Computed example of a mutant assay.
Amino acid sequence: MNTLPVDGYQLQGISPRAFEHPADRAATAALASIPGLDQVVRKLIELGYERALRAAYLGSSVRLGPAQLAETWNAHNQVFRTLDLDDVPELYITQFPVANASTIGAGRPIVVINSELVRLLGVEERRAVLAHEAGHVLADHVVYHTALVILLRMGTSLPIPVIGGLPLMAVRRALMEWYRAAELSCDRAAALVTRDPEAVCRTLMILAAGAEADDLDLSQFMAQAHDFDTGGGGLERLSRLFLDMNLTHPLPVRRAQELMTWVRSGEYDRIVAGEYLKRGEEPGARAEAGDAAAHYADRFRTLFKDAGGAVGSATDQLADWLKKDR
């Protein structure tokens, strides 16, 4: 089935806020409220870490173009046109056994896709990945993400533990929380660009399984995503929160569930029909800060309340057992 967008389909002037996930909006506002964080990010780039990271990619990868994987290169250009972006970053492919893609580079970003991703994914799924990366560029995620990649490459033995008065380990944790949220926004961008949310979910399923789509059933994966989202008690849900905290990307089943919940809300259809926020119409920073406080308060309050209920129930059961035993 051909799900390529119709000729001339373009989300003219679309603002990234139009498809921004509430968690992304909240996390971005939270980052902006950390004194000195932007100074730390700039310093990491000024110290040459970003140049070294870029050189490592460029020296061990192949730059794509009309004569190098032309189909993938053309899809890359198309997704940027669909998001009404004139400056198309260079696209590279690198030999790596994990299916992934990344966009890095302050000021002049580049998109890098791993060879395993191209091997596993079909044309539609590859376009979904490229559209996801284009969403990062439109949403201006690249500078923060570049800083996060630098900190992750440094590992736990950071040569400079503190910059600008901020401990880099804490900065890394904050950036990881933000990036997990940013990924949810860019899944929405991928759905809008491809006009096929199921292709995005199918991509997540393939990346999670490491197997080609012909051997997998999307309906079963989506049922699994629903079970993950709604199943288990408070303690289990709390454990998922702590599991997330150690990851740069949300778990694939959660991403699929979050995307389809948004699609079912009607927002996806409204944007595809041409009704969306445009660049220059975004609300002010004060409203964003309010959203941040509300989002994180609700997120943690619900989780700990559920966990507390589960602990209380377990305690009552233990007390009843002890009474009977006595």
Rank of each mutant, 00 (worst) to 15 (best):
G266E: 00
P283T: 08
K278A: 02
T261V: 13
E288G: 08
H249T: 03
G274L: 08
G284I: 03
A256G: 11
L238T: 10
F304I: 11
R254E: 04
L184R: 01
M222D: 02
Y268H: 13
E282H: 14
E282W: 10
F228G: 10
V272W: 12
L247F: 05
D217P: 05
F228P: 05
A174F: 00
G290N: 13
D306V: 08
L216N: 09
A191Y: 07
M245W: 04
F300T: 11
S219E: 06
H226A: 12
A189S: 05
A292V: 11
D291V: 14
T194L: 00
P252T: 03
E258L: 00
D229T: 14
M205A: 05
D291A: 15
E258T: 14
R299T: 15
Q220R: 14
R240H: 07
E275M: 13
I206V: 15
R279T: 09
M245S: 13
L247P: 07
E288K: 02
G232P: 00
S219V: 06
V263W: 09
E267I: 04
T194F: 09
E177C: 03
E258C: 09
R202H: 06
D217R: 10
L216D: 07
D306F: 09
M205N: 03
E282G: 13
A297V: 12
